[in-house]
């Protein structure tokens, strides 16, 4: 190991490392491996190190923090999708619509959006509360900060939904209103909320 190596490290291994490990972080690691090789390490050592680094990068990608919100939101989406067909809560909420329509426009529209947003906010609050509890950061301030973002997303999505239906019906795409209200919009809100929660939790490095 201590005898300096005049040979070049295996090019294929270096190429693989640079293609399959995170950009921006692979250059110093590749440089360290080249330096280690030139200090007398063997080709098999170099290959072992490269394959390990690629494996670590893959595991970090799958289990890493940036993928957790996506995985959690997908899980919530699947659960809501499974419950959507069985539950009787949404029809009860939608049954309130005729009463809302008695109010003059535009307040009828505002009330409709507020009603459905409140319904979705209850679902999303439970989902985000569970996420914050699992990530050991369930604090009222965190939850309120995340919910502020979520309520804005829910309300604007619900306001845009009728326009989306009109636009998509013109190109013959059939959509189910209930599925959007109960599954798609809350899932997107959970995704954005968990991302926001992760941002709140990221520690800021202390000085020097």
């Amino acid at each position: 190991m201590t005898t300096p190596n005049s040979l070049e490290p295996p090019r294929l291994a270096t190429w693989l490392l640079e293609r399959f490990s995170p950009a921006g972080k692979n250059a110093p690691l590749a440089g360290d491996l080249i330096e280690g090789f030139k200090q007398g390490r063997s080709s098999s050592w170099y290959w072992r190190q490269v394959l390990w680094a690629i494996g670590m990068a893959f595991v970090n990608l799958v289990l890493g923090k940036q993928w957790r919100p996506l995985a959690y939101a997908a899980g919530c989406g699947a659960l809501l999708s499974a419950l959507a067909g069985r539950g009787s809560v949404l029809p009860r909420v939608l049954a309130l619509y005729p009463q809302v329509y008695r109010i003059p426009w535009p307040w009828s529209l505002v009330s409709q959006i507020a009603l459905i947003t409140a319904f979705q906010a209850v679902i999303v609050t439970f989902a985000l509360g569970a996420y914050l509890a699992f990530s050991h950061s369930l604090r009222t301030r965190n939850l309120l900060r995340v919910l502020m973002v979520v309520v804005v997303v829910l309300a604007s999505s619900n306001a845009a939904l009728p326009f989306l239906f009109v636009a998509l019906s013109s190109i013959s795409v059939r959509l189910t209103y209930g599925w959007f209200v109960l599954v798609v919009i809350p899932t997107v809100a959970v995704l954005l909320g968990t991302w926001q929660a992760n941002r709140c939790n990221t520690p800021r490095p202390g000085p020097g």
């Binding site: 690691l29 491996l33 280690g36 190190q49 680094a53 670590m56 923090k65 520690p203």
Partner: peptide, 28 residues
């Protein structure tokens, strides 16, 4: 494994326990 060292250091950097900076590139 250098990959494990970097992974540990990146976790520590995320926790705010270490900081890193890049030096100059060298021919070696």
């Amino acid at each position: 494994k250098l990959g494990s060292v970097y992974a540990a250091l990146e976790r520590l950097e995320e926790k705010g326990f270490v900081l890193s900076e890049l030096g100059e590139p060298t021919r070696e």
